[in-house]
Amino acid sequence: MIILLLLVELVTAFRYEGDEINARLANSEADIIHDAIKVKEFNHEEVIRILTTRSKAQLTETFNRYGDDHGSSITKALLDEPAEEFKADLRTAIRC
Rank of each mutant, 00 (worst) to 15 (best):
T62G: 09
T12R: 13
T62C: 12
L59H: 05
F63P: 00
Y16N: 11
E17A: 12
I32V: 15
R95H: 02
N22Y: 10
L4C: 08
S73G: 10
V11P: 03
L6W: 01
R49C: 06
L79T: 13
I33D: 02
A30D: 06
V8H: 09
L6E: 01
Q58G: 00
M1V: 12
F86L: 11
N64Y: 08
V11N: 02
S28M: 13
N22I: 04
A77F: 07
M1A: 15
L5D: 12
D68P: 07
S73P: 08
R24T: 13
R91A: 15
E81A: 15
E9K: 15
G18R: 05
E85P: 06
T12C: 12
V11W: 00
R54W: 00
A36D: 03
F63I: 09
I37Y: 01
L6I: 01
I94F: 00
A88S: 14
T75M: 10
I37R: 01
E61C: 10
K87G: 11
R15E: 08
K56T: 06
E46S: 14
R49P: 00
A36H: 05
L59A: 03
F86D: 04
E9Q: 11
A23C: 08
F86M: 05
V11F: 05
E45Q: 12
A88I: 12
V47K: 02
N43W: 08
G71K: 09
F42R: 02
A36R: 04
E61T: 05
G67Q: 15
T75A: 10
N64E: 14
T60H: 09
Y16D: 13
T53P: 04
I74W: 00
M1E: 15
H34W: 11
I32S: 09
H70I: 08
L10G: 05
N22T: 04
D89T: 06
E9D: 12
L59C: 05
L7G: 01
Y66G: 08
K38T: 14
E41I: 01
S28D: 11
A83V: 13
L78T: 03
A13N: 15
C96R: 04
V39C: 10
I37H: 01
N43L: 04
I32A: 01
E61H: 06
I48G: 03
Y66W: 05
L7H: 02
R91C: 08
A83N: 11
F63Y: 12
T52K: 06
D19T: 08
F63A: 01
R91T: 14
L59S: 03
L59I: 05
R15F: 07
D89S: 09
I2F: 09
L6G: 00
I2N: 13
K76W: 02
A83H: 11
L5F: 08
H34V: 02
A57E: 13
I32F: 05
F86V: 03
I50A: 01
I37G: 01
G67A: 14
D89F: 12
N43F: 06
T52V: 14
R54P: 00
D19M: 07
L79F: 11
N27P: 03
D68E: 15
V47T: 09
F86G: 05
E17R: 14
I48H: 05
D89E: 13
